[in-house]
Design a protein around this nucleic acid. Structure first.
Lengths: 190, 190
DNA sequence: ACACCGGGTCAACAACTGTTTACATCACTG
DNA sequence: CAGTGATGTAAACAGTTGTTGACCCGGTGT
């Protein structure tokens, strides 16, 4: 009964989570190829060898990051009210880019070269676009995918700190343009 | 006067251009870090050492690719008629992604880690967004940049061959959605 | 006391990276 | 035709990468 009160100086699940968090950050920010396992380990403050131990390989870690992002996206997409979809989508898209939908979308753009990881990536993008098309009552899957691609691009450049005013735009700054864009792409007007 | 009729088996400018073309393709498709100089040299069918000879380094080659893209974008942007901007922009954006505006936009998303290259990248993105804002008579620079980011994201996923129907969409398929998006973002409707 | 085992560290490995150096080959000039 | 500079080649370099195997440490049961 000692395990419950002691902070467990050596905690496997905790270090595993720290590695996962650091990896998600690095992969989304710099991409797969530009990220080294030593970078991730240093960010997490643990030894490099633990990546191979807990995730089998760098690609295994990337897959775990994708799955993590998938879960997060599924969760945020679950509690969206069926009406007022344009404003709701815009609110999510304009949200905090460090954590949230944009952050996950950018990670979904990253490619590892690993086939299994790419399948996960593609599956989520497809299901997400299908859900988006269904939620807005729009029949064309193409417009939903254009919408996702546009949102991902915006999130990518929004997260970068170089192109102002986009880089320094606040949530309220982005809400207006995003609403207009979503309506024009997804809401039928004819 | 012999140089004009002989094919010049050893032609410096020709091999330099082949290296540049191969590099642009690789960098846009896979990004900077995921591309090796040997990949580029093999694609161009020349020796690896010539990259260092003609471009000083991998980063120098990347800078040359950016400058090349900048020139191409400036050229295509020069002959755009001042009116009917929405349709004209949509036509350019929907155009062939293997060569043209989308292709160049994707390259502009790529980061090398080199400071000089990033400055070139940022400068062009800024000037392009300013020109876009001016051409459409829209005051807000933010909306123009959102527009560019969206277009870049769309081009990125359009070039990838995995997410259908976006990946297999033709120029005419994309024209409609893009027109709607551009109008909603850039054309004043108040 | 002892062995055991989950958790963590360390050093080393082989493969790959960008770059350079020394050498070969071609085209052209005197 | 000799020679000279431009063009291309091959091999090797030093550094980095992902990965692995041997080892350590602290707690637990016996």
């Amino acid at each position: 009964m000692t395990t419950l009160q002691t902070p467990r100086r050596r905690d496997a699940v905790k270090t595993r989570r720290m590695l996962l968090d650091a990896a998600v950050h690095r992969f989304t920010q710099h991409g797969y190829a530009a990220t080294t396992v030593r970078d991730i380990a240093d960010d997490a403050g643990v030894n490099v060898a633990l990546i191979s131990r807990y995730f089998r390989s760098k690609e295994g870690l990337f897959e775990a990051c994708l799955s993590h992002s998938v879960e997060e996206l599924e969760r945020t997409a679950a509690d969206v009210p069926p009406d007022r979809t344009a404003e709701e989508i815009a609110r999510q898209m304009a949200g905090p880019c460090a954590r949230g939908v944009p952050h996950n979308l950018v990670l979904l753009l990253r490619k590892s070269g690993d086939e299994a990881a790419d399948r996960i990536r593609l599956d989520l993008l497809r299901s997400y676009s299908e859900r988006l098309a269904a939620a807005t009552g729009h029949q064309e899957l193409l417009r939903a995918q254009v919408m996702i691609a546009a949102a991902a691009g915006i999130a990518l450049l929004h997260a970068k700190t170089d192109m102002t005013p986009l880089a320094t735009a606040t949530e309220t700054d982005l809400f207006g343009p995003l609403c207009d864009m979503i309506e024009s792409l997804l809401i039928k007007t004819d």
